[in-house]
Amino acid sequence: MSDSVPRGIEPTGLQDLYRELILDHSKHPHGRGLHDGALAQSHQVNPTCGDEVTLQLQPGADGRIRKITWEGHGCSISQASASILASVVDDDSPEQLSERIESFRAMMHSRGQLAGDEDLLGDAIVFQGASRYVARVKCAMLPWVAAEAALSGIR
């Protein structure tokens, strides 16, 4: 994965938050779009900034979650987080998805201390830097909270 400092900008602590992978996902998001026949859906709002996400669990075989799709608007962190979540989930069992969400939450609440389990989180470990920015943790969490709420509707 490409994760260098964006060109032409003097490096600062900001690069730790806005990793290039995050900026790429926020500009070219994966998994956008809502569809009929979803397993479950959740709409979450961050009331302090107005960021919104509507997230759907798309049905696979045997009660599995084939993929996640979503629509929403907000800051680059929340948008990239939704995009990366959508890219990580691939025919998950509800238990698997739940495990990913718990792992992501543990990393985001660690204030940069937890590196994150790459097997569970894949590219989402890139948000470790964001976990140091307390005010931005809720931005990154927004789609994962939506996934959790949607999941609770089918379990």
């Binding site: 900001l14 938050l17 900034c49 960021d51 907000g74 800051c75 680059s76 962190i77 931005r136």
Partner: peptide, 10 residues
């Protein structure tokens, strides 16, 4: 092209 929260952070 840049959300206000990102502007504020920058």
């Amino acid at each position: 092209g840049v959300h206000a929260h990102d502007v504020g952070q920058y």
